[in-house]
Design a protein around this nucleic acid. Sequence first.
DNA 1: CGAAAGGCTCTTTTT
DNA 2: GAGCCTTTCG
Length: 727
Amino acid sequence: MDILDGLNPAQRQAVETIEGPLLILAGPGSGKTRVITHRVAYLVRKCGISPHHIMAVTFTNKAANEMKERLQTLLGSAVQELTMGTFHAICARILRRDGAEIGLDSHFVIYDEEDQQNLVKQSLQGLDLDPKKFTPRAVLSAISAAKSQLLTPQDYAKQRRTYFDEVAQRVYERYEERLRQSKALDFDDLLMKTVQLFQEREKVLSKYQKRYLHILIDEFQDTNVAQYMLAKQLAAKHHNICVVGDPDQSIYSWRAADLRNILNFEKDYPDAKVVFLEQNYRSTQTILETASGIISSNRQRKRKRLWTENEAGEKVIVFEAYNEQEEALFVVSEVERLSKQGTARPQDCAIMYRTNAQSRALEEAFIRYGLPYRLVGATRFYARREIKDVIAYLKLIHNPYDTVSLSRIINVPPRNIGQRSLEQLSNWAQAFGVPLYSALQVLANQEASSETTSSAKHPFSPRIAKSLLSFLSLLNDLIEESQKLGLVELLDEALKRTGYREYVLAEEDGEDRWDNILELRTVASQYKEMPPQEALTAFLEGVALVSDIDDYDTKANAVTLITLHQAKGLEFPVVFIVGLEEGVLPHRRSFDDPAQMEEERRLCYVGVTRAKKRLYLVRAFRRSLMGASTANAPSRFLEDVPHRLVASPQPDVASTKTLVYYASPATPPPLAEPAFKAGEQVRHAQFGQGIVIGCQPISDDQEVTVAFKGTTGLKRLLVSLAKLERI
DNA sequence: CGAAAGGCTCTTTTT
DNA sequence: GAGCCTTTCG
């Protein structure tokens, strides 16, 4: 098969233009992914470029994996040679290998946002500031923005304007110092340090420049200054840089993405060729026109003409519910109706919303009516406390200087090292300017030699000193074990020695939490092929850089619940956008900033253009936000949907007049008949006898809660799996 | 020292 | 409505 077969002229041009800079402006549904994969295949198969010399940067790991899968069929095992991943993942690899050149320890740990916030909190302490005015969150966001623009604390100092800037700058300095002590890098460092490495070490840069003859970057509209600089550095030798994006789909400016990267690409690369992909293969005429209607009100944009040969298709359905419960009910009954009709299966449908909090009402409705659903994100596996605790142990084993992780688990499970003791330890360490781990070792030496060397003598009571030392030896033992044990064995050993299992099981939801840990163990077991040390590094890196969307599996037989941001790059036959209200979408935080308001509009545009066949725009008249229920006006975006595209009876979306369109008289599907009733006596093969407490539908199954005799206690089981026997 | 309870503030979006 | 922090008590 020829690689160019089945491509339209513009797509073909995008694939064949391999020399020099290339900007591909790709409208939604224009076959962008297809172009990128075919371009890579073309480079390898037609131009004889080794995959080793190609770098492709994607926005998520998921996108990278999918692309690899597709290329597998075109290239076979040579795919492994490609450098493919997010900027963050690629940079982490580079720094692990060559970071020593700029003084980085190859055992650096990666700090996620929670870790960062803890560190900012620590750095704020002792500055004697109004904690209301200078929240860790706000300060961190300033620091992160600075780093995304490659501003060091010194650079930041030069351009600070307000008192807040001054404070943020001082915290930034302390924060950096602590990161360094902990041998840790935060997300932004991964980019910034790589840029720095390339700036300061010509040899290293040149090595990578020589290697990467071709560089491809997807979702270019969402890159920040640091990422842009990185691309520029890497491409400086060969100039074969191909960027793909769509300014209308730029939705990450709050994460310091800079639209100017794509808008000014042609200025920075004067010899750049530009290809427009404007034919849409995804959506119906109606959906595409709806999208155009919405986006064309933005003033800061290049006009472009999207078109499609697809049929007009179904009208857009606009629905106003009374409140979020009714909104959810409407969605559920529509999904049910479509699937009864055979029009769409549950997995063909997606429900998109502006904020994670909105998923709750939807979830409740789905559970209540026993419809299968799949929630992307929100539950954030790796953000769970027990998972973070266990990972903190592993991070510490990997790099004991990691002060954030050490502070996190020094008293988890409780070992008599309370806040005050930790504070004492921290102050003492700070006085020496060393990480907590080093301080603990100094303490150990002092205790061992029993000599009382004047000023530096530790401040701890004998009892506390004993607790601290026993923690230190626990940690040291585990570090020693890590030399010989495989990853899973190491994890087990850590859990055993710390007594974490007993600790977690004693809590409320202990069973669930323990199950989560077992799931983490399963993830760890996937690294068994590697040598132990390497496995630990790879595991921690993987864990640090995953995103919620990464393990989203489209095959499950379930409706997808997803934020508009996460929906970028996906497509569904049926899309519901809910919460189309002033204050929600657009979000109220964008009211006073026209640029942000335009981004809200783009977000809405992204949502609409995910739909292939059917689009529902749904809003609620009242909605409870933060406890209180408020009435909201219809979203201004609804006004931009041409009336002729909306299902009759014509809703007058411009007015606040109520409704309009009812899908079949809302007949809520009957509750599935519970398989068990409370009070029934049952027997389980493993847990023995018990009494049923309750039973409720969950996805396409039922969950039964049983109180078992003896030590087992309360268990929640899936009816289909548990094989409960009535007695 | 730590567990429990009560009161406070926020909530966009996330690699 | 929840997570976070502070307070209080054992």
